[in-house]
Write a protein that binds this DNA or RNA. Structure first.
Lengths: 354, 354
DNA sequence: TTGAAAGCGCTAACAT
DNA sequence: ATGTTAGCGCTTTCAA
């Protein structure tokens, strides 16, 4: 059951060459005689040799591993001992991983890393103690860098990583400014697309369920929507703030409906909330899209799950997270040094809800 | 930006002791003079020292990292070069991570590992090439062992890992027998709970949407359900096989309904399919639970999302995956050598769908 | 209890 | 093109 610790030395002996030559063959260096190369390869094959990653990392100072950090902003005091607040953590973890958005993040990251034989280490960082774990992990060289997805504004992690001189790239511009690379969406443009679509559909009594307004994404999506309506002559757009969760969407929709029973169109700042909004609309006897047109945001799996399937503003999450991984790799390899922003364009996807 | 490579030597000099002593303090060995221990700790603090993981792993032969493998069974031939079949992979990855089940798996694993300062490396293994990556990863000592969650029967990975002498624990008994530890649910018992509940609710014209019948979980849930009805005198239970996805549930339900328009209760082998079934029922003018009572399985987030919220057989996934991680740790530490099965009991959760 | 020293398995600089 | 050798930073005997 124990690793039989076959080393370069063993393979070298088997092939009748030196350690260095075997190393060269394994690392695909060009300056090796083709004949010898084949002999070595055969020896590797025969012995079933697998290089030791720790030994290699020790000298190359690279692990070929990156951390994928899902970061919250919990400011809860230090945990007492190693018995963390299990409930708080589980609640956060459960909520994060239940969100279809997260699956797309992982998909994009894995899509980029795997062909390069790299793999992400999953870390959840919703407390101060957890953030320390993340920085410690990187500082001890367990990973070459971090991909950070914040779920809250005011997340102190990006700035912390920069301060520690660690490689990191964020999903979305950090609310707390820091000289760090990130990928983001032209959220404002997305809000505009939603507004134009609803207007084109002939809806005139519009409202919106926004995301958290302390988050840039929440603000910008709303701003783009409101601005566009304003240019079209609408002075006031009823608004209810949600928290990007299904329940908060249903709740916000209900509020909107009670204050503006005659509304005929609504822009909801993400699909999960839009799904909740559709349920709330149905419960209040409104048909979607006949009575009320609904436009979501993200084009996540919730857009398909929702009845009716959602018209939504697509955010190319997989492409964005793949780009994040590429950006990080460039920083790690030193091919890029300046903090860089990569902004993606949203796209309207028309389905049945409007 | 480069790691400033502070070493044990530096801390030792700072503290005026030897490397060995600093090492002992850092690893919490008892045989260190308390006074010296404090001096060393102060030096560590002052210098901001972080031990190098690779160097440590090289000698301890342990990485404190484990792989979390989501495994499919794709038998597709070897990929040509490093340009994997991106579409197939993305489809698999997207489907896996969109499933609420997966979030709970991660939650349970992280819940166990994090307090121990360990973190899972996420790997997707749906092709032969990907499986090779997984074994190579483990053989080179990049992780101490693997947690394997198979999404298909006939997954060759568990047997492969055993053959390679690597540490691994499976979620659910492998369909292809192998001497390997696993955690599982008493699926048959779950089917029984569903049947008894529907009978107690007075439903008599029952049917079932099963999971894939080549999967032990699919077979057993169905067997438990059918057996129990049989003992209650029912000779035949209409059945439609699904694939554990929302769409397959809706489809199976529609088929069932066309053949047995008068059914008044249905057991659906997971919540995602049950959600699809509820939608299909609604589309065919049936009210849930008044006309047709529905019982799901898993108690995943889909059970809450579903309208109405699902009565379901709870599978304690988080506990099960945490137990998996513990089992793996025991194997790694040598505290457990025999393949072990840990079977969890299901529990009926009554909500509004029946 | 503490220190000196021998590796862990690999890469890379240098010599040939 | 190949071999020799000096570390990478740590843990862990073994002596003191």
């Amino acid at each position: 059951m124990e690793r039989q610790s076959l080393t370069l030395e063993d393979v070298a002996r088997e092939a009748g060459v030196s350690r260095a030559t075997v190393s060269r063959v394994i690392n695909g260096m060009r300056n090796v005689d083709p004949a010898i190369r084949d002999v070595v390869r055969a020896a590797v094959e025969r012995t079933g040799y697998a290089p030791n990653r720790a030994a290699r990392s020790l000298v190359t100072r690279r692990t070929e591993t990156i951390a994928l950090v899902i970061s919250g902003a919990g400011e809860d005091g230090e945990d007492a001992g190693d018995d963390e607040s299990a409930d708080a953590r589980n609640a956060f973890t459960a909520r994060v991983f239940a969100d279809p958005f997260f699956g797309r993040v992982v998909g994009g990251v894995v899509g980029f890393l795997r062909p390069r034989s790299m793999h992400p280490v999953l870390m959840v960082a919703e407390s101060e103690a957890a953030r320390s774990q993340v920085t410690a992990f990187l500082r001890e060289g367990s990973a070459d860098g971090a991909l950070v997805v914040s779920t809250h504004a005011e997340d102190p992690l990006p700035a912390r990583l920069v301060a520690e001189g660690l490689h990191a790239v964020c999903f979305a511009r950090p609310a707390l400014p820091a000289p760090i690379s990130y990928v983001d969406l032209a959220h404002r443009e997305g809000g505009r697309l939603a507004a134009e679509h609803l207007i084109a559909r002939g809806r005139r009594r519009l409202a919106t369920v926004t995301g958290p307004l302390d988050l840039p994404a929440g603000q910008e999506r709303h701003a783009g929507f409101r601005e566009t309506l304003e240019r079209a002559g609408t002075a006031y757009v009823p608004l209810a703030e949600g928290g990007f969760t299904l329940a908060s969407g249903a709740h916000a929709m209900t509020r909107l409906l009670s204050e503006h029973p005659d509304l005929d169109g609504v822009f909801v700042a993400n699909d999960l909330m839009a799904q909740g909004a559709c349920e709330a609309l149905r419960e209040h006897g409104r048909r979607v899209p006949q009575d009320v047109a609904v436009v979501g945001f993200d084009d996540s799996s919730a857009a398909h799950t929702c009845r009716p399937p959602l018209t939504t503003v697509r955010q190319p999450v997989e492409e964005m997270t793949a780009a994040m991984a590429r950006l990080l790799q460039e920083h790690i390899q030193g091919a890029r040094t300046e903090p860089t922003a990569l902004i993606f364009e949203p796209e309207l996807v028309v389905r049945d809800s409007s």
